[in-house]
Design a protein around this nucleic acid. Structure first.
Lengths: 199, 199
DNA sequence: TACTTTTGCTTAACAGTGTTAGATTTTTAT
DNA sequence: ATAAAAATCTAACACTGTTAAGCAAAAGTA
């Protein structure tokens, strides 16, 4: 009797339900308000049930972080594939990163510790490395001096990343500049870094 | 009988003791581990006493945030006054900002929401504006086109700030690049922004 | 000195948190 | 129908921030 699979499917549904419930609560009330009992309320179980699906609360956050990196990676890849010119590709990729941060700001906060205390784990999460690699590759295409030095691409990558992550964080935490200024900073800075990428 | 003043002094000592205790705990165990009862333990009182000196836990964080901004402002001003050339002044100021972030990383985390959920308040904290003004002034000295447009100085300021804050955050949350790469990103990016400040 | 008021401080409690152990109910297998 | 197994809940522990009530010492007043 195929009830084994039905049960398996139900379990996966519940697991997904927990993640969805967590996300729903966070979107409504923010990360600080997320609690195991609230999740249990939403999925109409009691709190201890959750521990059958995740080792602890951090396990839920970890899984959401993972999903966040996967989605971010998809968006960045999509942006790259929408252009052919390498410079346009790189610009488009960072703009996709930017868009993700605001479209999925709960995820972004979790992934990069913006006002959320998320434990040290993403450090070597393979899903996180995928996005990083996409950027590294795109940068190295633009470097004319061969062979590309690891240090140089690293430096360029972090320059991009710092600027964009900083702009995002400041906007998520404080209400930074207005949208127009943000767009101008973002676009002009990206272009400037690309322009001086071989200096 | 001058006991009024003695009592006043004692109260101020206790208040300072609370702040010191909080800071001590945070330095040892991080922001997430800070609790009212732990503070009470350190100052050798029970928790409710703290509420005679601060309205609530957030009040303590608010005061520490205030102190953080004051200290940051002092450091940035000090850096400015150590140079005479305007470009060198601006560079020196951002380097001081950078140094503060790592020397007083607990403060920095609190002030700018790096992995700490600090409520929306610094928004209009006068102590915070002091540092901002210092940077704005230093930037506007370098702008040749008069009168200086508010938009342009704002754009330049946020470009600097984003880059440096981003670099700091990434280092505080994840362990970013190594120190040498960081220094290189920092210095070369500051110089690059200054160089193109009138474009 | 005796009494009252104020002050300083503590204990106890409430509602919430993450998490675990034990009991109970429901489902499955024999 | 009965025994075993799985699913789920209740109760508890040790925390959290915060408040109210009570106690004990000090200060003020007669």
């Amino acid at each position: 009797m195929g009830s084994k699979e039905r049960i398996q499917r139900q379990k996966e549904d519940t697991r997904k339900g927990i993640l969805d419930a967590a996300l729903q609560i966070v979107k409504q009330e923010g990360w600080a308000a997320l609690s195991m009992r609230k999740i249990a309320d939403v999925i109409e179980y009691t709190a201890p049930i959750i521990y059958e699906y995740f080792p602890n609360k951090e396990g839920i956050l970890l899984e959401l972080t993972r999903q966040g990196y996967i989605n971010l990676g998809l968006k960045v890849k999509e942006a790259r594939d929408s252009k052919t010119d390498p410079e346009e590709q790189l610009e488009s990729m960072w703009l996709a990163y930017w868009d993700f941060a605001f479209a999925e700001s709960e995820f972004y906060q979790l992934m990069y510790g913006v006002q959320v205390n998320c434990c040290e784990m993403y450090k070597k999460m393979p899903e996180a490395e995928y996005t990083t690699d996409l950027f590294y590759d795109a940068i190295e295409v633009l470097l004319v001096k061969q062979p590309v030095s690891e240090d140089v691409s690293c430096l360029k990558y972090y320059t991009f990343w710092s600027l964009i992550h900083g702009l995002i964080s400041l906007n998520l935490v404080q209400k930074g500049a207005n949208d127009q200024i943000n767009q101008e900073i973002l676009r002009s800075a990206i272009k400037a870094i690309i322009k001086t990428i071989n200096d």
